[in-house]
Nucleic acid binder design. Structure first.
Lengths: 224, 224
DNA sequence: GTCTATACTCTGATAGAC
DNA sequence: GTCTATCAGAGTATAGAC
């Protein structure tokens, strides 16, 4: 499976960076816009590598090139920064699954989904780890969205997969677990990146090799 | 795939609980032994659900039924508690892979490994999350072991898999990535437990369903 | 061995000058 | 809008009584 760095990632990248969030002050001047995104960029770095409680406003402010009170001028609290990041992320995170087309060719659609998810892991590993941190810690700030939008979307797409199975166009499998397996396999390359690289050693491109491997895996798995 | 809660888990459970760690004061009296394991039990709870920095000694001491200074009588620092947990964990964590027998029947050996890993996720989810937290945050306190023991063991077992592939006894695949896929798929059920349960809804047993799904997946994947 | 008291640092957040 | 100064609380760790 060839991962293209092209159109899809660029579009999603723009979404991940620019989509306004609910708890964010609406940017008005150019300076405000610049500072706000500097804060979110820095916060993504810090939250994704230390978790919510492990991250400090000092670290974020430093990385954003602002003073701590100045950061708190843009966001009312640490929690608000985190929420702003998560709410921007979740929506974009679901787009690849939304794009799974019930009228497409089953194999192509699923393979494209796997590929898009792997691209997300490759191009937005910090976002993946931010999400993983949140889930790992019990999803205290995101549970509603998971039980709501996420579950709704997954149920809908699981029904699509199930229909394809009924028609004998792909192998019969538990559709929800098929989706979990795509998440697990693709996100592993982002979330466990340091372990993957350490175990593979020098001279490997985990994402390229992973892409090939996953293409084979799902081809064999889905063949009716 | 039927997950048995029996012998294997009990043995590993004992290891995870009782194996002495390097940075731990050697228990001597019965009281010391009891307090030390109460601390480690409590620390596992807290570290696995909040990460290293997110965990506090207050929480751990409370959960262990001790005062904070008393906790610090048994372990010299927060870091020491964490290290004690991790070093006990890592060794036991690798046992299932060690047990992969080069002289066994390839399919049986790999399936047994998958099953054991899934049992670990089911029976020791906190340990899995402790490990995931550590890797996610860049493995600052465990990198040496990953580049050392873990890599050595994986390389060794990858060679076994590769030999089986050469003999045509299982399908040809990138052996390291095959191992990653087992880790990713089985650990997902522990690490993303709240998401899996929220998406599945009521009335599901994620681990039982996952066991069946993974058995099918690897049967199809490995068939020559 | 265990506790109370406390030292000292870090952290999130606010006040108020400019 | 941005900064310095600062507060109150939480955090790790230690001293010292018992």
């Amino acid at each position: 499976m060839r991962l293209h760095s092209a159109r899809f990632s660029i579009i999603l990248g723009a979404q991940l960076r620019d989509k306004p969030a609910r708890d964010m002050k609406k940017p008005q001047t150019r300076i405000q816009e610049k500072n706000t995104s500097a804060i979110l960029e820095a916060a993504l770095d810090v939250f994704s590598s230390h978790g919510f409680r492990g991250a400090t406003l000092d670290q974020i402010a430093d990385a954003a090139g602002l003073s701590k009170p100045n950061l708190l001028y843009y966001f009312p609290s640490k929690e608000a920064v985190h929420t702003a990041l998560l709410s921007r992320l979740l929506d974009s995170w679901l787009d690849p699954l939304r794009a799974l087309n019930p009228d497409g060719r089953p194999m192509d659609e699923i393979m494209a989904y796997v590929q898009r998810k792997l691209e997300l892991s490759r191009d937005f590993p910090r976002e993946s780890r931010l999400f993983a941190n949140e889930i790992l810690q019990g999803a205290p700030r995101i549970m509603a969205a998971i039980e709501g939008d996420l579950k709704t979307l997954v149920d809908e797409k699981a029904a699509v997969l199930s229909a394809w199975m009924d028609q004998g166009r792909i192998a019969r499998l538990a559709p929800h677990h098929l989706i979990f397996s795509i998440w697990a396999l693709t996100q592993h390359y982002a979330d466990f990146d340091v372990q993957v690289r350490a175990v593979l050693g020098e001279g490997h491109d985990p994402f390229a090799e992973g892409g090939t491997f996953l293409e084979t895996l799902f081809a064999k798995l889905l063949r009716p």
